[in-house]
Design a protein around this nucleic acid. Sequence first.
DNA 1: GCGACAG
DNA 2: ATCTTGTCGC
Length: 230
Amino acid sequence: MTSVRVPAGSPATEEEARAVQDALRARVVLDEPGPPAGSGYVTGVDVAYDDERDVVAAAAVVLDAATLDVVAEATAVGPVPFPYVPGLLAFREIPAVLAALERLPVAPGLVVCDGYGRAHPRRFGLASHLGVLTGLPTIGVAKNPFMFAYDDPGAARGSWSPLLADDGEEVGRALRTRAGVKPVFVSVGHRVSLAGACAHTLALASAYRLPETTRRADALCRRALRETTT
DNA sequence: GCGACAG
DNA sequence: ATCTTGTCGC
């Protein structure tokens, strides 16, 4: 199991963190369609915590988008760099995720994050942040709607409805990946269109509600956390 | 001021 | 995120 400690260096205050988001937001690229779904590599990233021991473990799992076979995986562990604050999740997860991505032996391709991208109070969620820092195409697939409104999409797999901000902007989509099951909440991160993000999500989530990428990354980071004794 | 609030 | 057993079902 590849594992490495993550370097320190995070905002000292919430105000500082919000300022970082406001500064980096301008670098998000929204006018690229992104790679086509179903081919190339797709990488899932996720993290698990043990606040008692002050440990965060991240995992990055690369899948062949056509077969969903695992191509490569990497993990990284380190101290929890930031408390959980709604809207500032990225500062808690990104240092470890970056370290795990750097340990991969192959280029990640499109990165699927467990959380939001554009669907964020300041339009700069975890997926947007990771995209800007790495330059990679990224999308966010969340299990719960944050502070946005939506109508329940149709019961059929593939049905969707817009995820709307207060000002009426479509910041993402509630996408039904399995018939009759609670939808997932998709938003773009960096260099991918919303339609493309949904196409990737649907291609990755045929057997279960969540994309295979996040399922694999979730299992791996939990295991890495369990096996960490430092 | 009070509550809501991705993971 | 995390605390947490057994159980019903494919």
